[in-house]
């Protein structure tokens, strides 16, 4: 099965707000979150989208 769009990873500083099937990266600070998200973006060839303050998802388009 191929997915047109899917969440590859979740990067967040608020661990309590997320759960589910995608890998979740818990971070302590916003800087750490941005750094990890930037790396994941390059590695996974996905785009980091901000859902709310402190919650980023990496999406493959």
């Amino acid at each position: 099965m191929t997915h047109e769009k899917m969440i590859l990873a979740i990067v967040t500083t608020k661990g309590e707000t997320v759960a589910g099937g995608a890998p979740i990266f818990l971070c302590q600070t916003n800087e750490e979150m941005e750094r990890i998200a930037a790396n994941l973006e390059a590695i996974l060839d996905g785009i980091a989208h901000e859902l709310s303050e402190g919650l980023l998802i990496i999406v493959k388009h």
Binding site: E34, A37, A38, E41, A48, H49, E50, L56
Partner: peptide, 9 residues
């Protein structure tokens, strides 16, 4: 247009 998560971007 779109949602950009990273401030650097």
């Amino acid at each position: 247009i779109m949602n950009i998560g990273l401030p650097a971007r």
